[in-house]
Amino acid sequence: MRRQSPLTVGLIYMAIGVLFTVFAVQHVSQSGWGFFAYFLVLLATLDFGSGIRMLMLHFKIKSIQNKKK
């Protein structure tokens, strides 16, 4: 099985973060701020954080590879 690049994983995490944000906004507009809305916001925050970390890792690996050349 092929290993995923940090860029791909980062973009997937960012997309999932956007999805959880959309679900949270829809839930808050229908039912107000409850436990489930806060939970969706927490999941979106974790996904955005992981996505940013993976994207930073990708660019750091690329810069190290470019310095070796």
Rank of each mutant, 00 (worst) to 15 (best):
R2A: 06
R2G: 05
Q4T: 09
S5R: 07
S5L: 11
P6G: 02
L7R: 09
V9D: 12
G10E: 02
G10T: 03
G10L: 04
L11Y: 02
L11K: 11
I12C: 07
I12P: 00
I12K: 11
Y13K: 11
M14T: 06
A15P: 03
I16P: 00
I16N: 04
G17M: 06
G17S: 13
L19Q: 04
L19D: 12
L19P: 00
F20S: 01
F20M: 08
T21S: 12
V22H: 06
V22I: 15
F23A: 14
A24H: 11
V25E: 10
V25N: 06
Q26V: 08
Q26L: 12
H27M: 04
H27T: 07
H27Q: 08
Q30S: 13
Q30D: 10
Q30Y: 04
G32L: 12
W33E: 06
W33Q: 06
F35W: 08
F35S: 04
F35E: 02
F35Y: 09
F36Q: 09
F36G: 04
F36A: 12
A37L: 02
A37E: 07
A37K: 02
A37I: 02
Y38K: 13
Y38P: 00
F39Q: 10
L40F: 14
L40D: 05
V41Q: 09
V41M: 14
L43V: 03
A44T: 03
A44V: 01
A44D: 01
D47P: 00
G49L: 14
G51W: 01
G51F: 01
I52V: 15
R53E: 06
R53G: 06
R53H: 09
R53L: 08
M54P: 01
M54K: 10
M56Y: 11
L57C: 03
H58Y: 15
H58V: 09
F59G: 00
F59R: 10
I61T: 14
I61S: 13
S63N: 07
I64W: 06
I64A: 09
Q65C: 07
Q65L: 13
Q65K: 13
N66M: 08
N66A: 14
K67Y: 03
K67I: 01
K69P: 01
